[in-house]
């Protein structure tokens, strides 16, 4: 029995898939959705603000939302891992899953660069933002959009187990 099958047959995975408890699959997925809403919600406001939307909204104070963004990210990393092990053999054979992971990896890189260069740069207080900052904002928006799309399509394309 290989590692993936072992993970999928673990007591935890079986509980997630088959217990019927609202705390199992429905609850974990609910947390994953709340996490997405908070994470991508904050990202969207930061990115759109960099791109020139809501110009009278001061940019620098948005930094206070960054810890919340990362809490949401780690909640989703945790809940995402739980959902993955419960369906490991199917998800890890689905190319769409790797599209999602690639989108998230690039989005995280963009987020780190936005935090270092844009929040840490002189424009954070006064603006306007240089073209490079706007490129990062577009990259971040496109990657998160791709992650949402690929995530949703996991239920439809490639091998699908119904989870």
């Amino acid at each position: 029995m290989d590692v993936l099958t072992a993970l999928e047959q673990s007591g935890f995975s079986i509980w997630v898939r088959e217990s019927g408890s609202l705390l199992a699959f429905p609850g974990i997925l609910l947390l994953h959705t709340y996490g997405m809403a908070v994470l991508v919600g904050i990202v969207a406001v930061v990115d759109l603000r960099i791109l020139g939307f809501a110009p009278a909204l001061p940019f620098a104070p948005l930094e206070k939302f960054l810890p919340m963004l990362w809490v949401a990210f780690w909640v989703n990393a945790a809940t995402g891992t739980m959902l993955l092990v419960a369906d490991a053999t199917t998800k890890l054979r689905n190319p769409d899953f790797f599209v999602k992971m690639a989108c998230i990896a690039l989005a995280v890189v963009a987020q780190r660069m936005i935090q270092r260069r844009v929040f840490g740069g002189p424009e954070a207080a006064a603006g306007p933002f240089p073209a490079q900052a706007k490129m990062l904002a577009v990259m971040s928006l496109v990657c998160w959009l791709g992650a949402i799309l690929a995530g949703r399509l996991l239920a439809y394309v490639g091998p699908v187990s119904g989870l």
Binding site: G41, A44, G151, L153
Partner: peptide
């Protein structure tokens, strides 16, 4: 249906972003 679901998720992120920032 899947296309609408994906858009529904994007829409909820936009809605939540404003709810979070204005209300907090």
């Amino acid at each position: 249906w899947p296309a609408c679901e994906a858009i529904h998720f994007v829409g909820l992120c936009l809605l939540f972003s404003v709810v979070l920032i204005v209300d907090l």
